[in-house]
Amino acid sequence: MRIAIAGGGLGGLTLARILHLHGIDTVVYEREASRSARSQGGSLDLHPESGQRALADAGLAGRFRSEARPEGEEHRILDPAGRTLVHHKPAPGSLSGRPEIDRSALRDLLLDSLPADAVAWQRRLVTATPRPDGGFGLTFDGGQSADCDVLVGADGARSVVRSLLTDAPLSAVATLVELTISDVDRRHPDLADLVGPGNLWCIGVSQILAAQRLGDGSLRVGISLRADDHHLDTYRSKRVLLDLFDGWDPSLTALIEGADSPPIPRRIEAMPSDTRWAHRPGITLIGDAAHLMPPVGEGANQAMLDAAELAAELVGNPADPDSAIRTYEKAMFSRIHPIAEMSTRVQAMMLSPGAADDIVRFFTPRPTEPAPAVGSAPGPRTSGERL
């Protein structure tokens, strides 16, 4: 059984690692030239019931704990005047909740757990063609080709593999602009104190200015706006961004002024929360390729859980991969639907005119309940993690 995984993100690498542990060889085809070809984004928090469970199945729980930053769970939510609305502090050193880990560190952890030849770099999938005797022929940018018996699409929001199973549309749900402040403790100690060891959200009317602390001593700043018709180039100017936050406390807008990278804007998209497809032999999807959701809390965790559950089915039924895939898909559709609906509601709340009041109510526990875990984003999560 030759298994090809399109996409070397967290979901695809988790799947490859678990299958490798059970003696099932796979090849991960990744479009990037190397692990260091581009930034992997900010940090994320791994949930015990999903991301951490997947790492346990992958035999990597101990290595995760050594890389995790439990202090990164600290989270403050402010209003535009700088007044604190919510302040969550985790127990010092505790790994019992949802500790943070930089995406780059987590990806490196997974890559280091695989044989060197398990990832084929610089292989951007262009087409996957069904073969008459089953399986697929794969063609990559540059003319390379390969064959497989089972194809797993882990190739993200713009998945090529998805088009073989569903034509579910993508719709814009927000605009996100990201910036970076490097060496923040030395260069901007006031901003380091403002953000702290974890995450900061500043909530305005239909806009969020946020920042998160990374393990390399930098801050990742994010500006979240409602989806609009403006060309993305509109948001490549710091001056334009500062004008959006006119009247806000200068200590907050200093997060924009202090950035030493150019603003990087992009559209945030999502699929319908009820997306499903008819089972097709030898092919399936995991992660954003399967269920691209508004980025407010679950993306990376659910991608890794998808990988763990698909791997368990394939390991448990290696002689009948189609039955394994069918069982995985049925369970995944049932699990994801309420999570995707919740993500849609939270996305709307986060960028609503009354977001500040809604968020305070959301994070205020009832007398018999703990406070909800807060997200560790720049704004609504771009790679998924809490809420």
Score class of each variant (00 low, 15 high):
Ile5Asp: 04
Ile5Pro: 02
Ile5Val: 13
Gly12Phe: 03
Leu15Phe: 01
Ile24Met: 06
Val27Pro: 05
Glu30Tyr: 08
Ser43Met: 03
Glu49Pro: 09
Ala58Glu: 04
Leu60Gln: 01
Arg63Gln: 09
Ala68Asp: 03
Ala68Thr: 02
Pro70Leu: 08
Glu71Ala: 11
Pro80Ser: 00
Thr84Trp: 01
Thr84Lys: 03
Val86Ala: 01
Pro99Arg: 01
Glu100Ser: 14
Ser104Ile: 14
Leu106Gln: 12
Arg107Met: 00
Asp108Gly: 12
Val126Thr: 12
Thr127Phe: 09
Asp133Val: 12
Leu138Arg: 05
Thr139Asn: 09
Gly142Tyr: 14
Gln144Val: 15
Ser145Val: 12
Ser163Asn: 08
Ser163Leu: 10
Pro169Lys: 01
Ala172Leu: 08
Ala172Val: 14
Leu179His: 08
Asp183Leu: 12
Asp190Ile: 08
Asp193Glu: 15
Leu194Ile: 02
Cys202Arg: 08
Gly204Glu: 05
Ile208Asp: 07
Ile208Leu: 12
Ala211Met: 09
Arg226His: 09
His231Val: 03
Leu232Ile: 01
Leu241Val: 04
Asp246Leu: 11
Gly247Val: 13
Pro250Met: 03
Ala254Cys: 12
Glu257Tyr: 06
Asp260Cys: 00
Arg266Val: 00
Arg266Gly: 04
Met271Thr: 13
Ser273Tyr: 14
Thr275Val: 14
Thr284Ala: 07
Gly287Pro: 11
Gly299Asn: 04
Ser334Ile: 10
Ala340Leu: 11
Val346Arg: 13
Asp357Pro: 10
Thr364Lys: 00
Arg366Asp: 15
Ala371Gln: 14
Thr382Met: 13
Leu387Asn: 08
